[in-house]
Computed example of a mutant assay.
Amino acid sequence: MLWKWKAVDQNSNIRKGYWAEEDQSRVVSGLREQHLYPVEITRALFTSVWIRYKTGNRKLFWGRTARKLGTMLEAGIPLLTVLDVIAERETTGLDKNQWKQVSRSLQAGVELHVSLQGIIPSPGHLFATMVKAGERSGTLPTALIDIAGYLEDAYFFEKKFKNALFYPVLLLVASLFIIYTLSLMILPMYENLFRGFETELPLATKIMFNVGCCIPYLTAVIPVLAVTVWLLNKKGHSFIIPGTGKINRTRQLIQFCSVLGRLLDAGLSLQESLLLVKNLFKDHLMQELTTQLIFAVNEGRRMFSVIMTSKLFPPEVAKMLEVAEESGKLSEMLAYMTRMFKKELEERIEQYTKLLEPALVFLMAGLVGFVAIGVLLPIFDISSQIH
């Protein structure tokens, strides 16, 4: 949700801007972290829709933004100058003001990961975590380029997965449309026709007519189901497309290994890195696993002892982590595991789409065949009685 705010800074100057946050209280706390004292906060619904449409995909937007920031910082350009350059390249006054507000916050002593939270669309917790790690360890340019690579990879994965599902989903929508049209227009006409002959209908025909009467009512359930799934996902309950459980789990393993390795490379301790990684996941199984890892590390035990008993990771991963922890090359091993899981993910997506397309084709063929049998059987019975 987007909020329009007006606040007073330490010099009694009026500042205005926009802030993306779920709750108004978080906007207030975020402004106070930037040494701004809110005077007025209101919702900005239409501005939010326009900004999201203009910026497109959030991951791609922040991936490209992080790469710009990291590249210019690596070239030795001061951070405030980098922000001025980005602000000047923006085409709208709203975007220019957002980046100028970030620059003013930095000049007031606010850290970059806090200042960026006021940018629309919001960079998210992962971005803020990586930037915070880079600031604390003095490796901000490297951290920005790392997070740029991660976000761009995540965007292209989502795009590839959506493209792979486009044709199967199109077939599914076509099937639902055909079913709805048959139940609403075609089947009632045949039902009235057959019942006019006052003959006993075959079992397949009775089933077809009874199911056809219920389908128009069942279609009203689909929007309710979609809203329910959206609310459950928003509250952290994992819901996935049937058959994509392993794909979703492999994707989570990629995120775990990639982010943890990048945080360790940024100079954070293992305990700090695990605490930050825990907040990235909504899935309760991944949160539980990360909590167990945090307890184990705090007690002086190795990560592999927890991974060994977990069903989320393949068995060989525990052995790989054991070797990496003993040799002190945990971040390198996590990077290798990330590449390994990415290859596995690509294979799973390809296999899933290869199985899904013919399955939907057979489903449509079975549907058409069942309707044809249900319609033709009583026609044959009636014609035999006439003869």
Rank of each mutant, 00 (worst) to 15 (best):
L2I: 15
K4E: 10
K6L: 11
A7Q: 04
N11Y: 01
N13W: 07
N13Y: 04
R15Y: 09
G17L: 07
Y18E: 05
E22I: 09
D23N: 11
D23A: 09
L31A: 11
E33N: 12
H35P: 02
V39P: 00
I41H: 07
A44I: 08
A44N: 04
I51M: 15
K54S: 15
T55R: 15
G56D: 03
L60I: 10
F61V: 10
W62V: 07
W62Q: 06
M72R: 09
L79V: 11
D84F: 06
D84Y: 09
E88Q: 11
W99T: 07
V102M: 06
E111H: 12
E111N: 14
H113I: 08
S115G: 12
P123I: 08
K132T: 03
A133I: 03
E135F: 08
G138Q: 04
Y150A: 14
D153H: 13
Y155L: 04
F156G: 05
E158R: 13
K159P: 00
A164N: 05
Y167W: 03
S175C: 13
F177M: 15
I179D: 01
M189T: 08
L193D: 01
R195Q: 12
T199N: 07
T199Q: 14
P202A: 06
I207Q: 06
I207D: 09
C213V: 13
I215Q: 01
Y217I: 05
Y217E: 00
Y217L: 10
I222T: 01
I222N: 02
V229Q: 06
W230M: 14
K235C: 10
F239L: 14
R262Y: 08
L264S: 04
A266V: 00
G267A: 02
S273A: 14
S273D: 04
L275R: 07
L276S: 12
N279G: 10
N279I: 01
L280V: 10
F281S: 04
D283G: 01
L289M: 09
I294S: 00
A296G: 00
R301C: 00
R302N: 11
F304C: 10
S305A: 08
T309K: 12
S310Q: 01
P315E: 00
A324G: 05
G328A: 10
M333S: 07
M333T: 11
F341T: 02
K342E: 14
E344L: 10
L345N: 08
Y352H: 12
K354Q: 09
F362L: 15
M364R: 02
A365T: 04
V371K: 02
V371H: 04
L376F: 13
L377S: 14
S384K: 14
S384H: 12
I386R: 05
